[in-house]
Design a protein around this nucleic acid. Structure first.
Lengths: 202, 202
DNA sequence: GTCTATAATTTGATAGAC
DNA sequence: GTCTATCAAATTATAGAC
């Protein structure tokens, strides 16, 4: 691990890698210490417990996504433009951190209630009601084909996020190597946007 | 746990629940024993180790899906009909076992290589080349809009699987209760099919 | 702040009686 | 086959020297 950072940063950087790859239950404090180039005692000196350390990582992994989503949803663009922005920005961001979505989704499913409390307290709750109203309005104006708004949002989220969540499965099933996969993901955003427009524009 | 089953069945039923909910690393043999209504020693008497027991559960969870997928893909229907069959059957199946996809995807990502070896040895590898050829042919005939075949398959898989993988996150973000969620999922298949047809038919 | 050594706890696995 | 009691290993957490 990079010696140029201070100890606390080295720990969080190492913990991020280990937790995101192994999950909370599968992560080992020893592995985090090794990767950070220090010993276990330091982890507790800085973060007191495994759980506290995990919380810092989880909050950051989730917290970087929601503000961007909120910014996109609350702009003054059309629904289709917002979906396109989301696909572009989300896929670009996740391409840099491909393991984050699976991490978030998996840990979240272990204790959904605690999570709801957390995002509420951090103010990360996306305000979807305005966006759904906009969606309904554009349908009424005939600018979009009529779909159930929630299903439609699920479709967009699914196509942007799922390939990264299921990367190991998809790579295995299609027998792709890493290079082929990366090339494919470079086009992902454009393909999703094309597909979306065909489905959405009357 | 149901006393009418024999011990081995009680164990596998209990292990399935615990492993699928907690993952391999998060599952505790004690919890499995408790849920099965027996003691830990019995688990080892029947399955020798945690890893062996896990393998039985994982193989079953994954192995029930692939034959169905293969059957759908190798029928003599059109691409769109195959996609519709997939959406219908897959969503119906998963609605009964909503935690399976996340379980498979998460455990898979821990050790992709071992998994590839496994599905290969079990003969579960889907033969996608024929389906991709059919897809290309229908595009050439002008019966489908031209999309990259792999991206197109990803889109269908994403829309069918992701909502179940991300159920806790989606429920939290949309502030849905369980009843609302179940109602929504009852319509999922129809919505996906409608969306797909609009995107696919020229 | 950082380390070594060690305590305390959890957890998978086994021995042996019935 | 099933149980209780126990072991052995792994893992989180802390004590105390420097």
């Amino acid at each position: 691990m990079d010696q140029s950072q201070n100890t606390e940063e080295r720990i969080t950087a190492a913990a991020k890698e280990i937790f995101i790859q192994r999950g909370f239950a599968g992560a080992r404090m020893q592995d985090i210490a090794d990767k950070a180039g220090i010993n276990k005692a330091m982890l507790h000196y800085y973060f007191r417990s495994k759980e506290k350390l995990f919380e810092v990582i989880f909050d950051e992994a989730f917290g970087t996504l929601m503000p961007r989503v909120q910014a996109i949803l609350s702009s003054d663009k059309s629904v289709i433009e917002k979906f396109e922005d989301f696909a572009d920005q989300y896929i670009a961001l996740i391409s840099e951190h491909p393991h984050v979505p699976l991490f978030v989704v998996h840990e979240l499913s272990q204790d959904p209630d605690r999570f709801v409390e957390k995002i509420r307290s951090k103010g990360h709750f996306p305000k979807l009601s305005l966006f759904i109203a906009q969606l309904q309005q554009e349908v009424d104006q005939g600018r979009l084909r009529p779909y159930n708004p929630v299903h439609l949002m699920m479709n967009v989220l699914s196509m942007c996020i799922f390939p990264f969540v299921a990367k190991p499965m998809l790579k295995a099933v299609t027998q792709m190597d890493e290079t082929t996969w990366n090339l494919l993901m470079q086009n992902r955003s454009e393909e999703v946007k094309r597909f979306l427009k065909q489905a959405l524009i009357p």
